[in-house]
Design a protein around this nucleic acid. Structure first.
Lengths: 123, 123
DNA sequence: TGCGAAACTGGCCGGGTGGCCAGGACAGCC
DNA sequence: GGCTGTCCTGGCCACCCGGCCAGTTTCGCA
């Protein structure tokens, strides 16, 4: 309703490292015009810092595997991916098999989920 | 650990709304101990604010559909999901069909990706 | 000059997936 | 009582998926 042009910006924190979270909270708490969100409160923006230890180094995927993976994440079937990349369905299956192996997944859905979790692809 | 003062915390911004980004940048620029990342610079944390217009309200999913969706995101097959929930494979397919419809997806992989994108599930 | 890695292709096949048909039980609402 | 919605189940079937076998070319590197 009568919100001034300089409404407070509410920020929430999603930080794995407790020390970093404390330092940021202390710093931001002193800033006029900013406020940290109460638990459960909707925030205008979120400060994210994921623990890099949860990503056990990037998995070594070839360029072609990344191509196939990206199209898999778009819901493409083997046939569609084959058309898109100008290769045969057999070759797509070959790359999908490698991806399932490298990502330790049981199927293409699991592969996309794993890849998204560890930041290999962005949904 | 012989640093007298804490090192600067480098923050990067990923904000869809330019006005909000400007306000935040102006506010944070005045804070001692904080610094905004240069383009391409690695940041200790990222401030994220996605445009809510990209999420056209929550999709109305029933509790059972959410159950099935969660297990799908874990890479479970219809058979595994059926065992997990104590229902028949046919019923799982029924819910999967509803999910594909409601999420406007072409397959289970696409459904999981869509759901993750609009925050219905967390990977 | 070999040798491995990457990319590509084929056939075959068991099992999974998704769409269609049909039905029943159960709860809440007018 | 009717109506609507969710949840559940069955059969049927075309198609897709993933794993197995086999082979080719091309490239960089020792």
């Amino acid at each position: 309703m009568s919100e001034p042009k300089t409404a407070e910006i509410v920020l929430s924190l999603e930080i794995d490292d407790p020390a970093l979270a404390d330092r940021l909270a202390a710093l931001l708490g002193t800033v006029a015009g900013l406020r940290l969100a109460e638990p459960g409160e909707a925030a205008a923006a979120t400060i994210v810092a994921r623990d890099p230890r949860s990503m056990p180094a990037d998995i070594a995927l070839t360029q072609r595997e990344l191509d196939v993976l990206a199209l898999m994440a778009e819901g493409g079937s083997n046939k569609m991916i084959a058309r898109q990349l100008g290769i045969s369905v057999h070759t797509v299956k070959f790359h999908v098999g490698s991806l399932l192996d490298k990502l330790d997944a049981t199927g293409r859905t699991d592969a996309v989920a794993h890849a998204a979790r560890r930041g290999v692809i962005e949904l």
